[in-house]
Computed example of a mutant assay.
Amino acid sequence: MIDRYRWWEIIGIYAGIFVFLFFMLSPFIEGFLVSLKPLSQLFSTPYSFWPENGSFKAYFTMWESVPGFARYIFNSFLISTIATVIVLLLVVPAAYAFARFSFRGMGLVLAAFLAVSMFSGAVLLIPLFRLMRTLGMLNTYWAMIVPGAAFLIPAAIWLLRTYMMRIPKELNEAAYMDGASQFYTFRRVILPIARPGIIVVAIMTFIGAYSQQFVFALTFNSKTEYMPLPIGLFAYFGKQEVIWNELMAASFVGIAPALILIFFLQRYLVGGLTAGAVKQ
């Protein structure tokens, strides 16, 4: 039987949670308050944390400061969605193979995936640029989709493989005894069970693709119509000043699609992260 917490232990737990949430959420709270302040108030002395005469004006003027900002958001969402679909199409069968079959050199291949995920995309910009130029992908969406998906695949394989290893192998054996092929077992038995884990990988991949587009866009693209959200945010940095309130407003508007996606898929996210925590 689990003992109940004493009163000072409960206070300590809630105090720890409060401190953790404060440091996690304080940058977002400060950024939101900055978006409500007039630009002149941001540099006043002494600095005021709470906005005086705050308004949502920056959320309307931001569209005028950077024309076509909606296109930047659409481009980021499109690039992230396509990259996520490509990653899932490659990662799901690969993770199943690494989780269910044993073959020579499997450990070496997994170690290579782990090593590749440690490299920064900036290290490989020059060879990637030459590759994109050879393939004719410069100044296209694919110049950001292909490298982004390539860097996200190794971590996705490791994450989904760990999830699929928790699925009992007896399910494969039972399906085999009933005459099912490996592909039928994978499609009709394993995939429905692994759906929470696949959704977790999809969310992580989408967020990763949404946040890593700045370097690839600057290097492989020079056309405004293909630029993603980070380039649009960079446009608020002027030669003489930075429009901080509009920059913060644009940041919150830009991350809204990712937040909406996580909101609707959060029950799958929690289910996938906690699956296997208890013995069935």
Rank of each mutant, 00 (worst) to 15 (best):
A256M: 14
A175P: 14
S181N: 12
A202N: 10
E173Q: 11
E170Q: 15
A250P: 05
G238P: 03
V242D: 08
P257L: 02
Y236D: 11
A175F: 09
F206I: 03
I199V: 14
Q182M: 11
V201N: 04
M177E: 09
F186A: 06
M227C: 00
I231K: 07
T205F: 00
Y236H: 00
G232S: 01
I207T: 13
Q212T: 12
Y184N: 15
A256Q: 06
F216S: 12
G254F: 14
P257C: 03
F186C: 03
A194W: 06
F183K: 12
I199M: 11
E170H: 13
F183S: 15
M177W: 07
L218Y: 12
I190V: 07
K169V: 04
W244F: 12
Y184R: 14
S211L: 08
L247Y: 02
N221D: 05
A217N: 02
A175K: 10
P168E: 00
Q182L: 14
I198H: 13
L229G: 02
Y226R: 07
A250W: 10
I190G: 07
L171M: 08
A217I: 01
L247D: 01
R166D: 14
K239E: 11
N245K: 11
Y184K: 15
I262C: 09
R195M: 13
V200F: 12
S222K: 14
L261N: 05
I255M: 15
Q213L: 14
F216G: 10
P168N: 06
E246P: 03
Y184Q: 15
G208Q: 14
G238W: 01
S222P: 07
I193Y: 12
R166E: 09
E173G: 04
L261V: 07
